[in-house]
Structures are given as structure tokens and as C-alpha cells.
């Protein structure tokens, strides 16, 4: 690929990303309330999205091979336990991550 072709390819990746981010704002412009169905989606989508994002992070985990997802399961339970107990976001995240690093580096 020439430099121009590379820049055009990067430009396409920028354009694609920006389309997915700006499209809802362009379709439903400011000053006019969005249709009730869209307002409803705006309210109910985020909880579903957070659930999907958790699964998205774990998409590389294989239950049947390697460590069978055990380090992930243990660390997620620790994150959840710590968070329900202390409600300190940084503590829950740091605790779970350190646990995961120790598990994958030293145990599995």
C-alpha cells in the first residue's frame, strides 16, 4: 500500500467509527423531542449494554480448553463480593485484577 492508500484506509476507519457515534445525534436533532420509542430505548438500553459489555470482555474465554475460565470466574466473584461489601469502586477493581494476575501468572 502506498502512503496515500494507507491514509485513505485510516480515514475510512475514522469515518466508520464517527458514523456509529454521531448517527443517533444526527437522526434525532436537538430542539425536537425524540419519538417516545427512542426515548424508551435510551432509558432501557444502558442496563442491557452494561450486561453485554461484561460478556464482550469475556468473549476470549474458553470453557473447554486452557484454564476453563476458572481464573475469570474466581476474579469476577471477588470483584462482586468486594463491591457488595465495601462499595469502593477502586478497591473492587484493584482487588479483582490483582487476583486475576496472580492466578494467570502463578497458578494456571
Amino acid at each position: 500500500m502506498t502512503l496515500t492508500q494507507q491514509m485513505l484506509t485510516i480515514g475510512m476507519v475514522v469515518l466508520g467509527t464517527m458514523l456509529t457515534r454521531f448517527l443517533p445525534f444526527l437522526i434525532f436533532p436537538a430542539g425536537k423531542p425524540a419519538p417516545p420509542y427512542i426515548q424508551y430505548l435510551g432509558k432501557v438500553l444502558p442496563p442491557a449494554v452494561f450486561g453485554l459489555l461484561v460478556v464482550y470482555c469475556l468473549k476470549g474465554v474458553s470453557i473447554c480448553t486452557g484454564s476453563h475460565g476458572i481464573p475469570e470466574l474466581i476474579s469476577i466473584l471477588l470483584v462482586a463480593g468486594l463491591h457488595l461489601w465495601k462499595r469502593q469502586m477502586l478497591l473492587s477493581i484493584a482487588g479483582g485484577t490483582i487476583c486475576y494476575m496472580l492466578l494467570v501468572q502463578m497458578v494456571f
Partner: peptide, 25 residues
């Protein structure tokens, strides 16, 4: 060099942003 493929692949990977936009209107 396949610019349209680059665009299509990016749209697929980042489609979830559409949901974020709807939530942040």
C-alpha cells in the same frame, strides 16, 4: 487496498456505539 471493506468492517465492530448514542441524546 480496499477502502470500502475497511469502512464496512469498522461499522460492524463499532455498531454498539449506536446504543450509546441513543442513551446519551
Amino acid at each position: 487496498f480496499q477502502p470500502l471493506e475497511a469502512l464496512a468492517v469498522t461499522l460492524m465492530i463499532n455498531a454498539r456505539h449506536l446504543f450509546y448514542g441513543l442513551s446519551m441524546l
